[in-house]
């Protein structure tokens, strides 16, 4: 290919990497730490409250998950979660509220293409892979665990 530019692709890409402003990493890390930690603390407070009123630990954890997912969905629907995500980054993506956000966001957006092929089909556009790989890996380790138990 004849090129006007006197650089190989590799040279150009190295040059671009040098040019590109880097993410403000320290700021991102601090925000992710604070927001991520804060969401987890809220989760713990919810669990503690339910356990205080005599709900068994496992149920309390499940209720906490449901409530956090509700909060994530609610904040997404009032257009707030995307703003949190902008400054919190992974701090708001990694907690379960972020999972909820990644289910709700495409559902809201693809509503314009109808309730079945729009909302329904696209709801798990981002979160689908989490289920696919989470469940797949759990079945694999379940099988290995079963084998181990069989022979030991």
């Amino acid at each position: 290919m004849d090129k006007d530019i006197n650089m190989t692709d590799k040279e150009y890409s190295d040059y671009v990497d040098k040019k590109a402003t880097n993410s403000p990493m320290l700021k991102h890390i601090i925000m992710a730490f604070l927001v991520g930690g804060f969401i987890c603390v809220i989760g713990q407070l919810i669990t503690n409250t339910f356990m205080h009123f005599g709900v068994p630990k496992d149920s309390a954890t499940t209720i906490t998950t449901i409530i956090l997912i509700f909060i994530g969905a609610f904040l997404t629907s009032i257009n707030v979660y995307s703003k949190i995500g902008k400054f919190a980054g992974a701090g708001s993506t990694i907690p379960i509220t972020g999972f909820s956000n990644s289910v709700v966001a495409p559902a809201i957006e693809f509503k314009t293409e109808g309730y079945v092929l729009g909302l329904g089909a696209n709801m798990f556009k981002i979160a689908g892979p989490v289920l696919v790989y989470g469940i797949t890996s759990s079945v694999i380790i379940g099988f290995i665990y079963w084998l181990i138990k069989l022979f030991l």
Binding site: I66, A73, T76, I96, V103, A107, I108, M123
Partner: peptide
């Protein structure tokens, strides 16, 4: 968790 995500997602999408 999965059911909650689906139902809240659905409801949110209806109104948002």
């Amino acid at each position: 968790g999965i059911s909650a995500a689906i139902i809240f997602g659905f409801l949110a999408a209806l109104f948002a």
